[in-house]
């Protein structure tokens, strides 16, 4: 039988180790599109959607971390349990496809495909999430910036399974915004996650669909973190505008069938400024 349906993490990892050429099937919302169009021949599949360890989530109170298993679907991330801790991730999940897609599509699948347009990825980048991987030789975790190395390219070894992510729980505003051709069922033309860490007095921003990987705007982040009045939690109009321009300058967009580089850069300028103003409503 060329389809395996493991029911434990140990079994899944062992199967993958024995057949690293296998396709790992999570929700199927990316893989089956390729299979249906004939672009991908499937020889061997490990379907991981019945591995209970991958479908859990929980809070580490001491480390102030949220753990989300790779098999947790978007529809669960949208619920108040996770949404109250990382609202930007819930917002991003809500923009993925339709209810039908969100019932089966998973965080792990978004990471496994690792498209620059993956909606949860700018959030994981902005929040400095860590990606956890397991193989028969052990477990390891890498920062998101080390995990995504190119368009649909990751540092996951073929024998490794993505088991989940840990996401720091921050005090401060956070949000995900996305530009597309319509509201529902749309792939991002440009997207942005801005997150404020009030305790650490920093502003972070991750950009999607405007480069080969998710782009963190390090220079703009440092600059604006020094301009915010942290005692008043306010920022001037001029600084909001300047932040938008600096984030736009950090983007590395291209012209393609979905949009132009110029439009995408402008979209980033608008999204970044708008999110910063939402984070600090006082001028």
């Amino acid at each position: 039988m060329a389809v395996s349906v493991p029911t434990s993490l140990a079994e899944a990892v062992s199967l993958l180790s024995g057949a690293p050429d296998s396709v790992v099937l999570a929700g199927g919302t990316d893989l089956m599109v390729e299979a249906n169009s004939g672009h991908r021949q499937i020889a061997s599949v490990i379907a991981i959607d019945r591995v209970p360890e991958l479908r859990t989530w929980g809070v580490d109170v001491v480390r102030r971390n949220l753990w989300i298993g790779s098999g947790v679907p978007y529809s669960t991330v949208m619920q108040p349990g996770i949404a109250s801790l990382v609202p930007a991730l819930a917002q991003a999940s809500r923009t993925v496809g339709s209810p039908q897609i969100r019932h089966v599509g998973t965080i792990g699948g978004n990471l496994g495909t690792c498209s620059p347009a993956g909606d949860t990825l700018p959030v994981l980048a902005a929040l400095d999430a860590r990606v956890h991987l397991a193989s028969v030789s052990g477990e390891r975790s890498v920062g998101f910036d080390e995990f995504m190395v190119g368009v649909k390219r990751t540092s996951r070894r073929p024998d490794e399974l993505i088991t989940g992510v840990t996401i720091p729980i921050l005090n401060g505003w956070q949000g995900y915004s996305k530009v597309g051709v319509r509201n529902a069922m749309v792939i991002a033309t440009a997207s942005s996650c801005l997150a404020v860490d009030t305790d650490g007095r920093s502003v972070r921003i991750g950009l999607g669909s405007v480069g080969p990987v998710i782009i963190r705007c390090g220079e703009a982040e440092q600059w604006i973190s020094g301009r915010v009045d942290w005692s008043e939690l306010s920022v001037s109009n001029a600084d909001v505008d300047e932040f938008g321009l600096r984030c736009g300058a950090a983007a590395r967009p291209i012209d393609d069938h979905r949009s132009t580089a110029a439009y995408r850069r402008r979209a980033v300028e608008v999204l970044a400024a708008r999110q910063l103003r939402r984070a600090f409503p006082n001028g």
Partner: peptide
């Protein structure tokens, strides 16, 4: 019990 697109479900699994 959950609404899904049958076209994106691998039948054999």
């Amino acid at each position: 019990g959950e609404l899904v697109c049958a076209c994106l479900v691998l039948a054999a699994a």
